[in-house]
């Protein structure tokens, strides 16, 4: 496993991301809720640049069988990454794909050391 400093802590505010190339691979560093996460920029659908997509929330629904009413809620604002090719959704905090059960963005361990963000590949 190799370690790479990809950013300084101060470089990214909450909600920011940075794309870097490490060992010929495109890696995206995200900062959400103060935490750093790193994923390979490769969508498990058809290999699109998932990490370059828009960051939004998504919708959730609840059905009340008694009233026969469906309530839509907007949730996870700022935590949902949308692949720019076909819109598959990924949960940034976990890397889990919301569009296909069991699928994930390839993730890499990240740690902060002396104000530097270090990614292991």
């Amino acid at each position: 496993m190799s370690e790479h400093t990809v950013a300084t802590v101060g470089e990214l505010n909450d909600g920011d991301r940075k794309l870097v190339e490490v060992e010929g691979r495109e890696i995206a560093l995200f900062r959400t809720d103060g935490e750093f996460r790193a994923y390979t920029n490769w969508c498990i659908h058809q290999g699109g640049p998932a990490c370059e997509g828009s960051v939004t929330g998504t919708s959730d629904a609840e059905f009340d069988r008694e009233e026969l009413e469906t309530e839509l809620q907007w949730c996870k604002e700022g935590e949902v990454l949308n692949c720019p090719w076909h819109g598959w959704e990924y949960d940034i905090p976990t890397g889990e794909c919301l569009s296909k059960e069991g699928a994930k963005l390839p993730a890499h361990p990240v740690r902060v050391e002396d104000e530097e963000v270090v990614v292991s590949l």
């Binding site: 919708s59 629904a61 059905f63 959704e89 296909k100 059960e101």
Partner: peptide, 13 residues
């Protein structure tokens, strides 16, 4: 898979 957020009642494919 493209439009999951449009049909959030669906919890599986």
């Amino acid at each position: 898979r493209m439009r999951r957020s449009e049909v959030p009642l669906l919890e599986q494919s």
